[in-house]
Design a protein around this nucleic acid. Structure first.
Lengths: 350, 350
DNA sequence: GTGGCGTGGTCAAACGATTTACCAAAGGAT
DNA sequence: ATCCTTTGGTAAATCGTTTGACCACGCCAC
């Protein structure tokens, strides 16, 4: 804690040695005779000195021991959402294991502000999580040359650390699963693809302009998995946070749909609830799949793709710490796994 | 971000002014003529100077703008548990609103280590959350005189900020509710009361020695609410994280119980699941109550007590920032509210 | 007795900013 | 012309450490 009223030189005076020796007592025990070191430590505690001031030390060493994490999403969400909180926990765990600490950076929505806060924070590097892509922040960051790791971004950014999942492969597995089950009309529920709110059908043009890549990648993978060998008549997206409402819309407008693939479990859970209320049997009348494998997914038997949340965090933290130590930026790709559960099955033959 | 290679004096040289003026340009615009200030800012950006180094600034100003939060529980839990994450979010929100940032402090279990980490962190003060009571940390902290706020601790600690809920009143409301419904045999499921693992019946002696106060307070409130006018034959506690298992044990050993009051929603949800599996009708055969009002409680109609998680965080952060500014430590008590829902009803008459 | 080599410490220069005086120049009032 | 104020800016001390260079001393070998 800052504010330690008493300083090294006071301890030095009291112990009758030089400041350097105090410093050595704390930082390089081998440079001091045990006798002197013990005396110093005794004097220190008797004076109530708790050790070198962290700020001064950081200044001198040019190393703070802190890593910043920047979120675009609001904090409430960041902590409660399993994906996000799992990630954070992973970051935290890795950092603490290496005796660094985690700093939560204020997140102003406009890019400029966010970067400003980043410059005001005493950290050795930052981890950027779930940013919109095509992002000014990234460019600026890159130009600056400070250690930074991005997570869940499109392809590796030169000069920055990168950790991502094989999202395409993960969702491809879902697609293949659905195809193999025999589904021919699949609906998709996705989070918003652009920064502007928009509900309803998502055309190709809109999709290509998407600035949020996570959804884009997943949908891409899904379509790959569904494949050409199967004739897929329509693919739909509804950008709506409430899975239930989205499902209702999809269902009423596209009665031929036999499976709904959701880009995240949250939506899928909403769909399941809606189905239950409407007495639509899952998977008999409708197959539902999710993505993320949140805790609740297992409870309700949702077929979904698991991503290793906290592993992702660990990896990001590890990478960043590496970079702080001067290692060149690397990138890491983590695998995902499809959990087939009770919410998916073959479509009704008609 | 630390590491900005270029410094104030370089900007000063380039702009042909003194370092002080650079500082003024950033910190006290009114002390500079607009002309000079703009020139400085221009030169700065053209040089790639991103503003005063946070660490150096902290050293000089004796203020870091960071607030440490210490958790005893493991991070995974800290982020995912709604109570905990809500609290964190509240803290974060308040801090950011006042342009401070949140630092997660590593949490070594032994008290000495924890405090050590605290001394190594560059923060203006700390918030301590859900500590075991009778805690050496508190004494040390108090002695030290650094700004600190404790949350969910027993009565106010002199010299420290304090924010708590009226836990007793909250659980008293549950007790009264159960009493008014006519229950006479109530079971209680609580988290562990001591640091040593122990499952089973919890006697008065063990309870009084409890080092975790939250459970203790709540149980106390519950018993107050149940009151003397009602003859309560037995009160039980099972210290077991799995509500379902706890309920099963309670139920088999105490068939006369008509209501189970849980110290936290987590347990109550487990009990409900167990009841469903065993076809025990709630609230017909069994009344179940929780505490915390997590999101899922509303979904399943669990009668519970809501505590204002994020308000708690806000209050803690606010208090701490106050103290950093030199205000004397205060304490804040936040109210709770009973939500009566479908999981509680009158007992079966026999 | 001289050269070489640890041991155990000290010196003093950074690290990069903030801030309290202090000062020069320019008006303004008398 | 003199004195008093602003206005705009600078000098220099300070914040509390870390660290590379340096030094005194004793010891050993030759």
């Amino acid at each position: 804690m800052h504010r330690s009223r008493i300083t090294m030189s006071e301890v030095a005076r009291a112990a009758g040695v030089s400041v350097s020796s105090i410093s050595n007592a704390y930082n390089r025990p081998e440079k001091l005779s045990p006798a002197v070191r013990n005396r110093i430590l005794d004097v220190a505690t008797s004076l109530g000195y708790v050790g070198p001031d962290p700020v001064a030390r950081s200044l001198r060493r040019r190393r703070t021991g802190g890593v910043g994490v920047v979120f675009t999403d609001d904090l409430e969400f960041a902590f409660s959402d399993p994906a996000s909180s799992g990630f954070l926990a992973g970051v935290g765990r890795e950092l603490m294991a290496r005796s660094n600490h985690l700093v939560l950076l204020p997140t102003g929505t406009p890019d400029r502000d966010r970067l400003a806060e980043l410059d005001r924070a005493a950290v050795d590097g930052v981890i950027l999580h779930s940013l919109p892509s095509r992002n000014a922040t990234l460019d600026l960051l890159e130009r600056r040359g400070a250690p930074a790791v991005v997570v869940d971004q499109p392809g590796p950014v030169p000069g920055l650390g990168w950790v991502g999942l094989d999202e395409v492969a993960g969702m491809r597995a879902v697609g293949e699963h659905l195809r193999d089950l025999g589904h021919r009309h699949v609906g998709v529920i996705t989070s918003r693809l652009s920064t502007r709110p928009y509900d309803g059908r998502v055309g190709g043009a809109r999709r290509r302009r998407s600035v949020y890549d996570l959804p884009r990648w997943r949908i891409h993978g899904l379509e790959e998995g569904l494949g050409r060998t199967v004739t897929v008549e329509e693919r739909w997206r509804v950008s709506e946070d409430d899975g239930a409402r989205a499902a209702a819309a999809l269902w009423s407008q596209h009665p031929r749909v036999t499976a709904i693939a959701c880009i995240a479990d949250t939506y899928a859970l909403g769909v399941l609830r809606w189905a239950r209320e409407r007495s639509i049997e899952v998977p008999h009348h409708l197959t539902v799949t999710g993505y993320d494998d949140v805790a609740r997914a297992a409870e309700v038997g949702l077929t979904t793709v698991a991503q290793p949340f906290s592993e992702k965090g660990r990896a990001a933290a590890g990478l960043l710490l590496e970079m702080v130590d001067g290692v060149d930026p690397r990138h890491v790709v983590l695998p995902t796994r499809l959990h087939e559960r009770a919410s998916s099955g073959p479509p009704l033959v008609r």
